[in-house]
Design a protein around this nucleic acid. Structure first.
Lengths: 184, 184
DNA sequence: ATGTGTGAAAGATTTCACAGCG
DNA sequence: CGCTGTGAAATCTTTCACACAT
């Protein structure tokens, strides 16, 4: 497939595609284009998603259960290795093919299974505490799915996902669509 | 509060803050800084989040329920006005302070309540169909929370949220942290 | 005094355009 | 011939630095 075809699919300029790919090496063949299966392998290798990464979820409520069964994770090289809750009623229950464990086991499990990624899916008032426990357990990257903004000391990276940000962005353009402004 | 203080909080350059705000008008007072309550009002007005927007959710499973009770929505000017499912067992159940309705009511409710935003929270294989129903019902913006990539014809805007993208991004830096490369 | 708003400089990214490989 | 990889140009963004308003 040529950079022109890829650019069509991605709605970006073809030179952009070529320059971005060339940044990591010479993947294409002149006169031919890019071999897609090879390209996918190369990109997965660059991103580090060519082998799977274990993640731990704190919070086994609706949100945690939804994330645990989200198939976009496995497709991208992530496996939910464990799910934790501090509600005794939930501990022992099944979520997907995992059993909910007590948060008191977090540190041991993270260490035993070399888990580097943590997902916070607790009520927002408990988010920072959950993140602190994850930090203490040795997790390196925390994805916070609550509306609270949480932080952690270096070298732990925290991603506060904001599912509303994009809606607000859209809103800005919606409210201008009365004008004669056209935007891509 | 001065642009220097804001820039400290946001970890960006102070000139950036001033230029971004100045783009929409002259909000600050020289020698003083920005009046925060006024600034918040102005930004809410620019984004269109100064009055609330009703949203409809399709799918009352774990994911839909989690979104319906996500407090980040209300804080940003969104109100979940209705939640739909096509599983007869779920119809009539409570989710937060809403009653799950049959998808067959979607079009009528969207029209009656002037709902412009729709959230797709069904199993991924049903995502495109749910988006199609939303499009047909007159919804203008669709937020797809499934791992499927869905599309809709103009003028409907679709946002395929990808909660894993950021993790992959982090992964790239994690795998390079063996090198002596420091990155912000 | 203090801190905005903004020209102008610096820096980064995107696009053009084409030499040269397969 | 067709398409990559890449110098050079164009464009966009960020930062500096300061005139000037309060």
């Amino acid at each position: 497939m040529s950079s022109a075809q890829l650019s069509e699919l991605a709605s970006v300029n073809a030179a952009q595609i070529r320059r971005d790919l060339a940044y990591f090496g010479s993947f294409g063949k002149r006169g031919v284009g890019y071999d897609i299966p090879n390209l996918v392998d190369r990109i997965q290798h660059i991103l580090g998603s060519d082998h799977s990464h274990r993640i731990a979820i704190i919070g086994a409520g609706n949100l945690g259960s939804a994330i645990a069964s989200y198939d976009g994770l496995r497709a991208r090289g992530f496996v939910v290795a464990a799910i934790f809750d501090n509600n005794p009623r939930r501990i022992g229950e099944r979520v997907g093919d995992l059993i909910v464990r007590s948060v008191s086991e977090l540190e041991r499990v993270v260490s035993e299974q070399s888990i580097r990624f943590g997902v916070v899916a607790v009520p927002h008032e408990a988010a920072q505490e959950a993140a602190d426990r994850m930090t203490a357990s040795g997790i390196q990257v925390i994805l916070n799915y609550t509306s609270a903004i949480v932080s952690a000391p270096e070298p732990v990276t925290v991603h506060n996902t904001d599912p509303v940000r994009e809606l607000l962005h859209t809103l800005y353009y919606l409210s201008r669509s009365a004008d004669s402004v056209a935007t891509a």
